[in-house]
Design a protein around this nucleic acid. Structure first.
Lengths: 133, 133
DNA sequence: ATAAACCCTGCCCTGTAGAGGAGAGTCAAG
DNA sequence: CTTGACTCTCCTCTACAGGGCAGGGTTTAT
């Protein structure tokens, strides 16, 4: 199967498939005598796994690591669980940060609506936004 | 005052100051006869405002817009409030997405711990991660 | 006089995940 | 025979906010 057909059937772009090969998500494709890449159905397993992994927030670099385990013959499950737990912890921190920011924004909006634009001095640019200090 | 002193006193890098001039956050500095940039204390108001704005999630592009209002002689407060409310709404969506992702990750971790790595087939790379379909 | 510290412009580099296009070769159908 | 669809490699570009050099000129203190 050629790259275009793989792309259509997996609903990814041809560019993406070449890129995945470039970054090691896909092994170097075998080639037809004319140089065209040739694939068998195993490519769909890779692409499906890659998509599912991206959906849970793994980067291509991490996905490549996971695949590397598998290629060394080791089940990557333990590594995957670590990754997932790290991602989860990082996500918790990030969500907390964003929630704090959202709170700030709401306070700012509330305060801002109570302020008079005519009382905003050029020197401070806009009195709605003040430095935390 | 020269750029280095501004940088020290405002606790930003010299690079950052030049960059801000480049992108229009700061007006082109006046120059000493030798070509060195020369600043008066107004630069600190800009830098302070810029920092405070970044802290609430505005981009330099947006900050530049706000400053442009001020330079046209209009109080930018109304525009700032719009920006803040847009950011807040976008943030709410984003937080919801991340929370959904965190939920997925937790489910995945829970299910993953219950699975046997030895039962993970090479074809699926890692059975902890499955496509949503 | 000279070394250390400062300043200038201009250029490339970072990370993410590819997109877009140039220029060329290949293949099937009409 | 030629048109259109496909494929190849290689190069540049995106957003964001600067960082890190090179290679030069200037100032300040010793």
């Amino acid at each position: 199967m050629r790259i275009g057909e793989v792309a259509r059937r997996a609903d990814v772009s041809v560019k993406t498939i070449r890129y995945y090969e470039h970054v090691g998500i896909l092994p170097p494709a075998t080639r037809e005598p004319n140089g065209y890449r040739s694939y068998d159905s195993a490519v769909f397993d890779r692409l499906t796994f890659t998509r599912a992994s991206q959906a849970v927030g793994l980067t291509l670099g991490e996905i490549r690591e996971v695949i590397a385990f598998r290629e060394r013959g080791e089940p990557p499950c333990a590594y995957v669980l670590d990754l997932i737990e790290d991602r989860g912890a990082a996500l918790t921190v990030r969500i907390a940060d964003l929630e704090a920011l959202r709170t700030d924004l709401r306070d700012l909006a509330t305060r801002g609506h109570a302020l008079d634009p005519a009382a905003c001095l050029p020197r401070e640019i806009c009195h709605v936004i003040k430095s935390p200090g």
